[in-house]
Amino acid sequence: MDWEKEREFTKRAREGDEEAFGELVRAHQKKLYNFIYRLCENHDDAAEVTQRAFVKAYFSLRNFRGDSLFRTWLFRIALNTFRNHVRDEGRRKHQTLDGWDPPARERTFSMMVEKEERKKLAEAVETLPERQREAVVLRVHEGHSFNEVAGIMGCSVGAAKASYHQGVKKLKETIGGEEQ
């Protein structure tokens, strides 16, 4: 969806046009679902959070002033919805490296079986602290700039860079490519 269309659909949705909002859902749902899946690695949770995030976004549209991309704003709502979901339901699947007892995973990234390094990498991502993982996923998988990452995470650009840097450093260490 191009910027002009997105703006038009956003305006119509803000006026209560549900079908216009449906078009926005169609345009962004896959990115949003993938983003949340990468944080929780569970389809049911990712599906629930994605749906709830869209509903929240609809009722918050009047607060969207258009000074950021709609997608960035949507990701921010989704991330906050996910953080609440983790807190509310106790479904947190990743913890810090210290004292973490890995749960049995119902499934994980589809390519991990074939290559040992990717398998280790996928497991290492799961063990990253929450903020580091969010920063790495937003930057590497979703292609957001650090300004956008900071906006979505609700932190400063410096903090977003630091979280990303620490996360990548840990991933390198885990797969043995960096000195401890």
């Binding site: 679902y33 993938n34 899946y37 990468r38 389809h43 499934r107 990234f109 589809s110 390519m111 991990m112 290559k115 390094e117 990717r118 990498l121 996928a122 991502v125 790495v136 590497v140 998988h141 990548v168 991933l171 390198k172 797969i175 490519g177 960096e178």
Partner: peptide, 15 residues
Amino acid sequence: EEFRVLSNLAALEVP
């Protein structure tokens, strides 16, 4: 090395 790690990371697909 970091670029190689990031490339592998980016290649992890969501089912």
